[in-house]
Design a binder for these strands. Sequence first.
DNA 1: AGGCAAATGTAGCACAGGCTACACATCGAT
DNA 2: ATCGATGTGTAGCCTGTGCTACATTTGCCT
Lengths: 137, 137
Amino acid sequence: MATKKQKINRHSRVRSDHRTELAEDYVEAIADIVDASGTCRAVDLAQQFQVSHVTVNRTISRLERDGYVTTAPYAPIELTKAGRRLAETSQQRHEVVFQFLLAIGVGESAAAADSEGIEHHVSPETLAAMKAFLDEQ
Amino acid sequence: MATKKQKINRHSRVRSDHRTELAEDYVEAIADIVDASGTCRAVDLAQQFQVSHVTVNRTISRLERDGYVTTAPYAPIELTKAGRRLAETSQQRHEVVFQFLLAIGVGESAAAADSEGIEHHVSPETLAAMKAFLDEQ
DNA sequence: AGGCAAATGTAGCACAGGCTACACATCGAT
DNA sequence: ATCGATGTGTAGCCTGTGCTACATTTGCCT
Ligand SMILES: [Mn+2]
Ligand SMILES: [Mn+2]
Ligand SMILES: [Mn+2]
Ligand SMILES: [Mn+2]
């Protein structure tokens, strides 16, 4: 039988986007922090996301469960191979969205804020359109 | 004392966007359904959002608590003045985002899907930039 | 009027992702 | 070496948003 072309409802798509959103932002942040300071600790993430360290702990537990990070008591947080891969693609997509907003005339500050949410809802097709727009400039 | 210019962290902004997201989509859907068929029942929303009618009930309860709708047992769902106002602005913003995606070359189907998530993260500044882009076309 | 299908309501469950309060571990400075 | 600050862990709470199972109400058809 042919692969069922499952026509996903658009609201279901948004809910699905949101399920992967925190993972994308966390691995992105972890990669950034590791690049900047060598290691990533829970406090760094609490600072970055403006949440309590407890919330970071619980989120990191889910990321570990899902195979994106490894942890050990009192040790820094490390990305797995899958985590690094997700961080890489997320960073690239985020950057395209950010540059695109700048390109259509949005200011630095609004572009930074808006792209943080928008990035997770940009399909490959829309991402390609944004890239094409940036190239044409 | 001067009003404190509270510099909101970008991740906090995204969390805040998400808190109003369901309300925006629901009042938008309710307004659409009322326009199309006269009244809006819970089943219509369950169909629209592809969730159970129980989930709709609980969401509608929160909307009522927050002053966007009124309900009575076994009666259709009605928007309050605040609900209609929110629906109006949400619809307009949604439409701008949708048309903007079409304008940069995204296909109908991806534009419909992506705009459903993106709309909630578009600041007034970015919305204005999108409108300006559409006008220049 | 009676009965059946559909809509609605309610009870009870799960998980994500927030929080405070408190306990314990680590590490640098003295 | 020890002490205090900082970081980390754990317990227990909350709300939002999803579900299934079951009870009740409504409304339409015969
Ligand atoms: Mn983000
Ligand atoms: Mn919408
Ligand atoms: Mn939406
Ligand atoms: Mn979102």
